[in-house]
């Protein structure tokens, strides 16, 4: 109990400090300030805890993992100027999916650790933590996109269209990232097991990634899978991104509503389901 004794001796001096601090009137926090602080909380340690590093490594690994083995096999059949040009959308999407999984892990950890519960008992608006998590998600997606673009550049990917299409490429990628992050956050927040959430989110990423037109043309899939392969969201995203990136050949497709539209429809549709769902979930908690 020596510690207790030491504390007793120290008390008279320190108690005064605590008393004065605790006697002061409580300040009034601003919602915007809280959003910013919570976002900083999620973003600031990403360099330190390896989140950024892992995003970059993941991007490199995805790029190398797809490109090196498949370049000679698929390159010729892709119909585009290079396999890098063909593969780039999938690399970028994998990077974004990876970012969203990381976000889900953090959201789930917060949820399991009781941090969300604590925030709910504090003078913080019910949507502020969610908004902060989404901002952090955007940050992750930007990092992921940047890493993917650099990796793609190294293997030979180039933007062949005007600047606005390049911007469109990045914006569409970020939009997909936001929707994925939202979905991942919804699942993560309501999960009681961060690790399980991570697994569950990696699976669709793998399955949809492999069964998409990101690696090889739809014609090379078995007949019965072709409708699924062609119409699943990842393939549609790949079509749209490929068109936005362009190519020296015409194989990238042109930027038309019929190419980009389905992607946007998928995104809008997903949000149309998830937003009400998350409102229900938020309501249920209070």
């Amino acid at each position: 109990m020596s510690m207790g004794v030491a504390r007793e001796q120290a008390r008279p001096a320190t108690d005064v400090v605590v008393t004065t601090a605790l006697a002061a009137a409580r300040p009034k926090p601003s919602t915007f300030g809280q959003w910013w602080i919570l976002t900083t909380r999620l973003v600031a340690p990403t360099l330190r805890n390896g989140e950024v590093l892992f995003a970059v490594i993941a991007s490199v690994v995805f790029t190398a993992g797809w490109f090196i083995p498949l370049n000679h096999i698929m390159g010729a059949t892709s119909g585009m100027s290079s396999y890098a040009q063909y593969l780039m959308p999938l690399i970028a999407l994998q990077g974004i999916a990876f970012a969203s999984v990381t976000g889900a892990l953090r959201a789930a950890t917060d949820s399991v650790k009781g941090v969300n519960r604590r925030f709910q008992s504090m003078p913080i608006g019910p949507l502020t933590p969610l908004a902060a998590r989404m901002s952090a998600g955007v940050h992750r997606c930007v990092v992921g996109t940047a890493a993917a673009l650099v990796s793609g550049h190294v293997i030979g990917f180039r933007f062949y269209r005007d600047l606005e299409y390049t911007v469109g490429f990045c914006v569409l990628l970020l939009l997909i990232g936001v929707v994925l992050s939202f979905l991942a956050d919804l699942l993560g927040t309501n999960s009681k097991n961060p690790e399980a959430t991570t697994q569950w989110l990696l699976l669709p990423q793998l399955i949809f990634g492999l069964l998409s037109v990101g690696i090889q043309p739809v014609e090379r899939f078995p007949g019965w899978t072709q409708p699924i392969v062609r119409n699943q969201p990842i393939s549609q995203f790949v079509y749209a991104l490929r068109a936005l990136a362009g190519d020296t050949t015409s194989a990238a497709g042109s930027v038309t509503w019929s190419v980009v539209g389905p992607s946007l429809a998928w995104l809008v549709g997903a949000m149309a389901i998830m937003v009400p769902l998350s409102v229900i979930v938020l309501r249920r908690r209070t």
Binding site: F54, A58, F62, V101
Partner: peptide, 8 residues
């Protein structure tokens, strides 16, 4: 995160 990398 390391496990995610492992999957990768």
């Amino acid at each position: 995160r390391a496990l995610i990398m492992l999957v990768t």
